[in-house]
Write a protein that binds this DNA or RNA. Sequence first.
DNA 1: CGAGACACGTGATGC
DNA 2: TGCATCACGTGTCTC
Lengths: 636, 636
Amino acid sequence: MNLWTDDNASMMEAFLPAADVHGLPWTPIGTPTQMPAFFTQETLQQRLQILIEGARESWAYAIFWQSSVDVGSGAMLLGWGDGYYKGSEDDKSKRREKTAASMAEQEHRKRVLRELNSLISGAATGYSPDDAVEEEVTDTEWFFLVSMTQSFVNGAGLPGQAFFTGAPTWIAGRDRLAVAPCERVRQAQTFGIQTMACVPVGSGVVELGSTELIFHSADIMNKVKILFSFNNLESSTTATGSWLPSQLFPQQAPNHGETDPSMWISDPSIVEIKDPVSPSTAEISPSKSPIPDNPSTSSLTENRNLSSIQQPQQNYRQSLDQQQRPCQQSLYNNEFNFTDFGLNGAVTSQTFKPEHAVVNLAESKRNSSSGFFHKKQIPGDKKSKATTSRGSNEEGMLSFSSTPAHPVSAGQGKASTTIADSDHSDIEASVREAESSRVVEPEKRPRKRGRKPANGREEPLNHVEAERMRREKLNQRFYALRAVVPNVSKMDKASLLGDAITYINDMRSKLESLESEKEGLEAQLQTVKSAALPPPANEQVVNAMSGKGRTTGMEIEVKLLGGEAMIRVQCQRGNHTAARLMSALKDMDLEVYYASVSVVKELMILQVTVKMASRRYTQEQLSSVLFTCITDSPRH
Amino acid sequence: MNLWTDDNASMMEAFLPAADVHGLPWTPIGTPTQMPAFFTQETLQQRLQILIEGARESWAYAIFWQSSVDVGSGAMLLGWGDGYYKGSEDDKSKRREKTAASMAEQEHRKRVLRELNSLISGAATGYSPDDAVEEEVTDTEWFFLVSMTQSFVNGAGLPGQAFFTGAPTWIAGRDRLAVAPCERVRQAQTFGIQTMACVPVGSGVVELGSTELIFHSADIMNKVKILFSFNNLESSTTATGSWLPSQLFPQQAPNHGETDPSMWISDPSIVEIKDPVSPSTAEISPSKSPIPDNPSTSSLTENRNLSSIQQPQQNYRQSLDQQQRPCQQSLYNNEFNFTDFGLNGAVTSQTFKPEHAVVNLAESKRNSSSGFFHKKQIPGDKKSKATTSRGSNEEGMLSFSSTPAHPVSAGQGKASTTIADSDHSDIEASVREAESSRVVEPEKRPRKRGRKPANGREEPLNHVEAERMRREKLNQRFYALRAVVPNVSKMDKASLLGDAITYINDMRSKLESLESEKEGLEAQLQTVKSAALPPPANEQVVNAMSGKGRTTGMEIEVKLLGGEAMIRVQCQRGNHTAARLMSALKDMDLEVYYASVSVVKELMILQVTVKMASRRYTQEQLSSVLFTCITDSPRH
DNA sequence: CGAGACACGTGATGC
DNA sequence: TGCATCACGTGTCTC
């Protein structure tokens, strides 16, 4: 909050890194020989996502801090590797009260994003009011965004410490965060983070943050370790091919290095398809010629659409990630900084390519209901649908929709699904899920069109989309449920539901018994207190057995509280009523666990609390039985 | 339990009806003119199922008591119409402790079923050890089974009363059931039923039972009324055709009355397909000739398989139902009784037909993991699949598989889906679901084979089946979850899950706060008590009975103050010490004028002040007498 | 290889 | 009329 009060400052100030690293000649990130782990970039995203979405706890974000080494000094640095943002329920549900300060803060954030936007897209279209940042940028989102600029030198900060010592760190609780020996952690606390964990893995540190209070669990630690043990991946992927980025970014593989990138940006109609929001590109597209049946072009289109539509947040995260990394290398080159997205620095001067990233950014801002990175996004709004459907670009339509039908029909998809062969079925399933919708065949392109919609109309497209979203939402709920239900035996949905049900029932019964217990205690306390005070000897007793009771001067009051009963008997002294009452209770197998007998003058008051263990009685049953036992039986 | 201790009695005793009706000439059930509602038999099952499965609450069973009228006397009788058994979680999860009595009872039940089995199948194959009843027959199952024999005359019993008065009855709670003015209800209580409801509908009474405590809800009442308003059904079905049973039992329609039943039992290969378990029939089938391409034969096969495979429990229920009805008519004709299954009495002497029913019975026993009627059954075990697939009976296979693919492709299927046009979408959906998988085209048979599986292998068949089952199971869980989660705002799955999650969280936090609250109260109480009870600290205290008292953990302290005595007893809770002490005091003619009993964990503290009126005791006398009375006397 | 689990596309249906 | 929900059949993967 107070970090951003300097409203007039350049937006770049927000992105200044915490550690002063800009002068050092860090090894260029992306050199295969030095950091093989880095090439798991595309799965990094997914792993972080899996970690977050599959966790029992509700983490707001996960960041992988990538370690690099200064070739000259040998200094070690942890920098932004990748991150996944999920957000928290708080962000969505409780709307923040709008104070003047927070409004100003919001304005600042939005302006930063807006300027970021215009800086990037400004080259082609200039700043347009359409790009205004409408959605509120929550604290958590902002903290995550700002995190990209951070880095930690030689074991500084929490992640650095974790990496240096090799021991995980876990800080739970606002107060703990506030006194942490790390600026970042304290900052996180001001942004509403309540729990932060850093787990060192082979080539970096995984940081988890949550707005909720999460206590230490070995479970998530294990998951992190499993998911980020890169050896598994290496062995499985090296079998399929080389370690080149082409494996990881199939659609960009042909462009790697200095190859001609015009292959996939030459036709604006493709841009239009893959970018359902940007008005500048959408306007020029319908008049263009149909897509040529160039194999590589088609497959690229296919893949791009696939990734940008099916998992927009991933693509967005990737682009941000790719944007960030060069930022660390050339931090003072600001103008260049935000156009230097390009595919590990391979393509820098193309004007259309940055737009792709911006497009994703704008899309996220526009469609996300509650924030910037939020997961559930509607990939296309009305306008975009209009342009794509009116375009009568059937070929584009097909490539837009067909591939998801059989995303992993070929063999290589299978190879890459065995990334982390852990025994955590849910993790594996999530990996598979995430992978199967992203990994596609780069070279083999025989079945471009999947199953065509039976009817010629384009409605099924959106229908499919909607259904996809619905499923995702449902799965999200399942994840959340998994998070709140302990002891989920098997990870499959049915057992999860079953466990949830039994858990609810257990808890409900426990709650019930506790409630009655509490009430009993309260009553007990009350009576003990009142017993300590002189007994009230009052007349206004409720009821019970008026007929016979009146003649004998006996009154019985029974109150049921769950499995317990409070019995109050008021009678004349001298008839051994206490003995009779106790005998009756014994005969009914009611265990006395509190009783008090007081005699005031000729009046006797008995107050008994009993537990119904073996048998259950109603109030009427109890009072009538007790009444008869006490009044009628002169025996014992 | 104790109802069946007579182990040597004939199994028929178990099936003796509660009401003595066997002499009366009841109208033969199944006469169309008198009881049109009866012809909804096939949907009766489904309605009951829908009722149970779709209910928020978890009912163990639903029974439709069918009303009939004695033509001679005009007396009215409620008899078994149909029933659906779901069972309870208790049956499955908590394994009953095996006492000798329960073992004997189990043996009795199993023998009854075994004998039933052998009686029916004995004609053809004789008793085989394969038919042994392995699974435990739970109380609820048994109660349901026995219910088939019951009937209620002229408003007798709970169902009769409900039918007579037209007002629904709802009894919740074991104690309430135990004191109900109906033998059946009390019996239900002994079998673990905790809630029973009777709702009168047009031509009978729907009874619901549950092993759980379910409080009155108008919701289920409405569902019953909607589902069992036969007018809707009549109007919709009369539009499609006649009211003959052919509509309801399509495969049996040609055999109704005295027509030749050989049409569907003439070819054993059909029996083999529809009967995947019975070894006797399975052995003779493969050598038989392939099924002729007789249209009616094929369609019959199709339908039989459809019903017996897709919804085995329904078929089983039907057969039991059909078996039961004649049982009411000719109750003393025992030998005949269990072979008189036949399709409303039309076919009685065929040997194969009863076997079909037995087959289902055996199948249920064999495959169900936890019980007899249990819903989730694997339709075919390994053996059956081997025979069907090895038989190279492609025609049979096709008829086996094709219809489910497009069950409601024709117009008439749709017509029958509008049975109950209620506004309860879930009910409607369930109706639709249940119907669509069963209702088939009786006359129009053009598209017998739906979509053939792309591959020639028969695997997709079972795959589809399995997937169906899986879905159903999941939905089951959803229903159950809906039952335990209150305030389910919308009925859709996502919101249900969301509500469940919030509910769990709410409950957990509430539980937590309650726990701490309770602890606080306890501590408070403790301090109050200790403050209220000033430490005795005087000299003439006798610590009585160190020897025995120490072993039993009992301590008695008696203090004499003039004509009064203060008695302090400290012992373990749970032995009705209070009652014993009071009795002892009474016997000694000591009048209590103050007493307090407190239980702290396992410790019980009694503090009593008595007046010595008629007699005087010494301290030693008092404590020794009291000690012996309390410890030794298990009497009152 | 078969059983179970899951996601997907698709048609139907209710608001 | 769109939009959401649902069930279904199918392909795929894992154990």
